[in-house]
Structures are given as structure tokens and as C-alpha cells.
Amino acid sequence: MASKPRATPSKALEGLLFDGMTIAAGGFGLCGIPENLILAIRDSGVRDLTVISNDCGVDDFGLGLLLDARQIRKMVASYVGDNSKFMNQFISGALEVEFNPQGTLAERLRAGGAGIPGFYTATGVGTTVAEDKEHKVFDGRTYILERGLVADLSIVKAWRGDAQGNLTYRRTAMNFNPDCAMAGKVTVAEVEELLPVGALDKAAIHTPGVFVDRLVVTTSEKRIEKRTVRAA
């Protein structure tokens, strides 16, 4: 087996990128995003991407950079937030968007990674989300069929990892990362610290190494979207 740690984000993605591919990216807003892998994808020039992610970062950071460079053809997402490029490209028709309820999106990734091709949920029944989907009644309640998601590549951001690919996440920077890590045919992680194998608390590993193919140690800017504080 090839060694998992790589020297740089672009080396970690070497040979994995191709036009028209599907990429799942962890993160929520600008929290817990694989920001250096996103930069390497932007610099690679790969295009016609389908990107699966909760949102699309902000105009000038995170996945917003790929929108800005017109590398994304389609977003599978749950929230636009305050990203005006995302909204304007969608409304003008330049960007295709498949809106998913956030829990449905997370479960689709988890299911895809777990080998489950579809599942029933009550979320979205009676809304546009349910259009053209199979409806089924269980115990008197109506549910719709949602499909599992598998990506050509998943990119995630973790706190600490080891050369086996075991990962832990920090606080709410976990968010979609473990679900995305499972859903990738290939998964690349950027980590803040690479610890010796055996140093992580074995019962507290969030993503076991089997889900991770390559990793790279990076320094993150960790930009804050909305700084809110209380008076001292």
C-alpha cells in the first residue's frame, strides 16, 4: 500500500482530478473547510465540476473561489447563505443547483458511504423536494425515497490525523467532514497535525483510516464569517 501522507495539497490531489467529476467537500460556512485543497483544485484549472457541499463558502473564500473561476457546473447543496455569487449564478441560470434539505444531504452522503443506495425520509414531503420521487406510507405516515451519494473525490478538513489515515475533528469543524470522508471513491484529508501512529485516543477516532486515502498537513487561515462576542 502506498503511503498516505503527501507533501503538498497539489501532490495530495495528483492524478485524481478530471473535468466533469463530482467532488464532495466537508465544511459548514467557512468552518472546517479543506481550504488548501480547494485552492489546489482552483489552481489545477479542472472544470465542469459537480460539487456536493452544504454551502458554497463566501464570495472570496472556500468553495466560492471555484464559483468565481467558473469551475463549478452544478452544486448539490442545502444553503446559499450570504454568498451573492452563488445566488446570482443560480438565478441567471449559469449554475445548476440541486437543493437538498441539510439532513437529507448529510444522510445521502452517509448512506452512499455505507453502501446504501436509497432510504426513505419524511423530510420534504409536500414540497418541491418531493417532486418526481417515490412516495411510500409506513405506519400511516408518508415518506419519500432519497438516493445515497458517492463522489469521485471527497476532500475533508480534520484536526489531527496519523499516517494510517485515522482522523479527529475539532469542535464544530467536524460538521459534514466525516460523512464526506465516507462518501468518496477516493478521500483526501488536510490535517493541522500529523501524529505518530498510536498517539490518537483509539476510542475517540472520528474517521477510521479505511475511509482516507491520502492526507496532507496544512496551515489554515480559518477565516471567521460572523464574529460575535459578549461584553467582558
Binding site: A77, S78, G81, I91, P101, Q102, V129
Partner: peptide
């Protein structure tokens, strides 16, 4: 205006 449903539908 498109905000996305986020977690509201869930």
C-alpha cells in the same frame, strides 16, 4: 431571493 432550506425542512 434564494437562501436554501438549510435544516428547516428537517
Amino acid at each position: 431571493l434564494v437562501k436554501g432550506m438549510g435544516g428547516a425542512m428537517d
